[in-house]
Design a protein around this nucleic acid. Structure first.
Lengths: 380, 380
DNA sequence: CTGAAAGCGCTTACAG
DNA sequence: CTGAAAGCGCTTACAG
């Protein structure tokens, strides 16, 4: 059935069977450690451990799993043997027997709507923070993390990964649309949690930033700084996040003056930010405040404003969004909205675990992470 | 043995056994789809598929694995049945039988030497690019990726993950020291590849940037721009990368003048860059060129130089390293060294797979990824 | 080209 | 508190 090679666990060096001896019922496999000719037996399976300890593999299994049925003496003895032999059990066998993987998946979009390959992973600094939070939390609770890309146009891969029992559930990034593809392949009670606001009210559980509130805070900061003609750049319909930021801006501004805004099509690029700011200044030369939907856009806007001879924040105050690392060191340092991505990652893991464990009481449909205004030079 | 719940694959909705019928030897499990009361049978195992197709599970297994023994007619029939029933095989069972995981690990350091938790994941934009390259390549060759943190002081976790057969091998980030811990737990022929230069000549296989050559190119660009008093900031011993960059600088400069450098202790922070630049100007006021070991340091240096009334690049030219996204939009746009992290990720995967497959001919001990000079305003 | 059977290495209900 | 045995769902050498 299996090849001979299979009987030798990868160990310190190229394993090489030299002799097979039967002693006290235990098959001892000797291996030539070809670096320093040190010879050591290989312990591969629970059965090997059991035979060394002189117990059954049932007992060995229970001992290693801290099953209270086993006496402390026996348990400690077996655990010591396992440790001394660097025994580690076969994950696949465990997973087959228990029908659980002890692993969750992080699914990242292979393409976004503009077909940029893995752009979220490659270019979004916020992704790093969330990933770090997810990793930290999975580590804390003793789970492993699989990371995999998927095509938002055919999310069946997510369902397959769970159905194969390779993972117990999935955190899904960057799917902002609950399209038919999702609804068709993935039921509402599937062990899955989304990062981000969905474009439509969705049946799936989500964790997201509070974009509306963040945008309101940002705009309010401009109002509090005494600004009266406050514009918005960053688009208003491309994604739920963008829509929510635009709504937050309008909410804060409605009693002041009519909204001044420019739609930023496509991505949140520096180039687009410069172009939007120029158009805005042409249309409304009396602007004295700008809320930009991202820090990159804010920096682009500031560079245009400076070119036009405006001083920041005296003539025009600017507030960004995201609090990227650069925001602090930009001249002028950027006032912006910060969301704790690390905490978001931790919450995503906890929420997914609750869903997997079916703890309906503790699972809210929508979880929002806090937003904070970081006040720096560009608006104070 | 197993609970009843185990017999119901997670499916469109909360699974709920309604009746168990025995028909033509096939146990048909009916499930009430409680959203729309649609009723559908569940196909969980190869055996189920085999019975529907009227073949043995041996044949079903071979057909789904495209085994050429099976006739095309039978194969297509079985594959269609599997597809129609959204059948996906149990990963753990497959893994146990084949003793392979079809998965590789990406190990990231939980702590660096200064005990910053997951700083690499959280703050290194280059990590994103490498991760995207790794993901893209594992996807291409049909492997999955597990990402896990480890404590560099006890890398036994890496060996355990491989020995449990949860992964077939590992890409290790951010371990720049081959300390005894590594040597003790992980043999030279272990299926593992490191990102980065090791501090000492190591027995392990590595992929890394060509830091010496990058630094030489950067310094040469300053020389080519006619600069004579070229300084270096960025430290010279903290890590192999930093050492190599310092060496590259010295190599390019040796015929020109005596090296001028400041050690940057600790992390490559903006604050540290400003401090180093101030010290350097105090010591050598006649500096006309600066090679900074990172773009962040270069930006910090430029901000200090501007404060001191220097114009860039006329009075002092500056070259950075990394080509972070911001480098292009900084004023002045930064001349810098670029390494293709995405390609590095792809190479890491290919190299690890070669190691796993034991293709000694095609595996070089050290692989260096290309470095390029990106010429922008700060040095031209 | 196909099938019956053994095996992969765990876990655990059952019996003692 | 411990063990023999069955079972998890695959794969494949062997026999036909």
């Amino acid at each position: 059935m299996q090849s001979v090679a299979k009987h030798f666990r990868i160990t310190k060096n190229e394993t090489q069977p030299i002799a097979t001896t039967y002693a006290t019922g235990l098959i001892i496999k000797w291996v030539l450690n070809n670096m320093n000719t040190e010879i050591k037996p290989i312990v591969r399976t629970l059965d090997d451990i059991a035979k060394i300890a002189g117990v059954s593999k049932s007992t060995a299994s229970r001992a290693l799993n801290d099953n209270p049925l086993i006496s402390e003496k026996t348990r400690l003895k077996i655990q010591k043997i396992a440790k001394d032999h660097n025994f580690i059990k076969h994950y696949g066998a465990s997973s087959l027997s228990l029908n659980t993987s002890n692993t969750i998946a992080l699914m990242v979009p292979k393409y976004d709507e503009n077909h940029y390959d893995l752009v979220r992973v490659k270019e979004d600094p916020f992704f790093n923070k969330v990933l770090a939070g997810i990793l930290s939390q999975t580590d804390l609770i003793g789970k492993e993390l699989l990371i995999s890309s998927f095509d938002p146009a055919s999310p069946v891969k997510i369902a397959q990964l769970v159905n194969s029992r390779k993972v117990d559930g999935a955190i899904v990034f960057g799917a902002t649309d609950e399209n038919e593809k999702f609804s068709d392949h993935i039921p509402a009670n599937f062990p899955i949690v989304f990062w981000g606001n969905m474009r439509t009210t969705t049946k799936y559980k989500t964790v997201s930033g509070n974009d509306m509130e963040g945008a309101r805070l940002a705009t309010q900061a401009l109002i509090d700084a005494g600004k009266k003609n406050i514009a918005y750049i960053g688009g208003f319909g491309e994604s739920p996040e963008v829509s929510a930021r635009f709504e937050g801006y309008k909410k804060a501004i409605h009693h002041l003056n009519s909204p001044k805004f420019i739609s930023g099509f496509g991505r949140y690029t520096h180039q687009s930010g410069e172009q939007q700011m120029r158009q805005l200044l042409d249309l409304y030369p009396d602007i004295d405040g700008v809320f930009a939907g991202s820090d990159v856009l804010a920096m682009a806007a500031i560079s245009v404003l400076k070119q036009k001879g405006k001083s920041i924040p005296e003539n025009v105050a600017v507030v960004g969004y995201d609090d990227i690392d650069m925001a602090e060191f930009f001249k002028p340092a950027l006032t912006t909205i910060s969301q704790n991505g690390f905490v978001a990652g931790q919450i995503l893991v906890d929420k997914l675990i609750s869903i997997i464990k079916k703890e309906p009481d503790s699972i809210e449909q929508r979880t929002y992470i806090d937003v904070h205004l970081i006040r720096r030079e560009s608006c104070q």
